[in-house]
Nucleic acid binder design. Sequence first.
DNA 1: CGAACCATTGATTCGCGTCAAACCCGGTGG
DNA 2: CCACCGGGTTTGACGCGAATCAATGGTTCG
Lengths: 239, 239
Amino acid sequence: MSIVTTLIKCLEARDTLTESEKALLNDVVLEPVSVPAKTETTWPGDRPGRCTLLLSGLMARTKVSIDGQKRITAIHVPGDFVDLHSFLLHEMDHAIETLTPCEVVYVPHPTIARITEAQPHLTRLFWLSTVIDGAIHREWLITASKPSRQQLAHLLCELYVRLKAVDLAADGKFRLPLTQETVANVLGITPVHVNRTIQSMRVDVIEWRGADIKILDWDRLAEEAEFDPAYLCLKQEPR
Amino acid sequence: MSIVTTLIKCLEARDTLTESEKALLNDVVLEPVSVPAKTETTWPGDRPGRCTLLLSGLMARTKVSIDGQKRITAIHVPGDFVDLHSFLLHEMDHAIETLTPCEVVYVPHPTIARITEAQPHLTRLFWLSTVIDGAIHREWLITASKPSRQQLAHLLCELYVRLKAVDLAADGKFRLPLTQETVANVLGITPVHVNRTIQSMRVDVIEWRGADIKILDWDRLAEEAEFDPAYLCLKQEPR
DNA sequence: CGAACCATTGATTCGCGTCAAACCCGGTGG
DNA sequence: CCACCGGGTTTGACGCGAATCAATGGTTCG
């Protein structure tokens, strides 16, 4: 199984690729790099010069405010192009860090630039992946003004669907090796409150022991979260 | 002054355009359409087939939850491509509405597709505009978990800078013809609380009468908002 | 066995929501 | 010219959800 497999799986969840496109991606994706957990790979103000393709593990995009509060604005699962937007933004407006030990591949910006010059279809698929990134931001923005239970329920639904798309979740079960403090940084609430929220959800909809989560009643969880996976755009269509 | 002027101004805030690119845009942008205030132009589930370029007025992207709560996930000012992401998403996951009377131009998806096939540079600039859209979402996400005063301060700073970039704001003054209820839908708080927040800010940092806003002390407002315009990417660079 | 890290619990405070009423102002019509 | 209306703004009283602060368990690992 080659290195690009997960990326191709992610792209092909939204459209089909030609053999030559797959071959091109294979040439472009070089050797993987291991990064330990809790390591910042990019800082705000950086001009990275390459994009990060996540192969395994979980990464996050974060922003720290003056008072030291860290807020996680995005969580990335294997197959995600974590900072594809840096190709166009140039200067980073946030940090990127590993939440767990990760394997990544760095793709130089000039490589992506070449693709945009000669591969309109691949370009659109890359563009699409940043657009979906934005759609996820919008969902998080909406849940942000809802009660914490609903917020957490939505996060779990989303992560389950995204992990399942890359075969890292099944039967309502998945691994989420995050501390409650990290979850708090995702939801924008305090760790203490995350704990209480998890406890209230343990009563009826989830099992959550250590890093192992089991969704006991998907329908109820999704209903409470008002979760509709449409925004994740997991439908093959010509783009 | 031609119709594309505002669009070109917006794109050229981030990179320079060649004459032939400007000419192409001029050919692509057809006659404007007037839309009355408070009109929904797109609904969730729609497959629009064209993108909306805003020429004048304010538009919003909204999502309504089961209980009828409307949340505004984005505000658009003249020059913005309101729903450029629909070109790749195909199916809309949210609604689009005018907040004030607006003039718009509809650009058919096939037209944009043609640009992506033959105009890599323009394509990257369009892509960039959706990426900045995402950056704005991230900022809103971060402020969402902050006290309402800081949230509102940030919104005012952002709108001032964005309006100024298209010459619709100057000297700390701009028009914002929104009701407090609409502002509440932007911030995800109640109209009542918006009112109290505005009042507390009137004491020291802003004047706000009807649709007219004057920022009395930019530095103080920006400091309180922790506002750093970097994410709006208003710097000319080759992209 | 202690150190470090994480999860959990309790007590108290505070920002914001909720509900309901009052007010303000431009527009309309008698 | 004034009564009346309606949409938006403002005010007050009250309750709840989440923050805060501080302490206590539980596990893993040197």
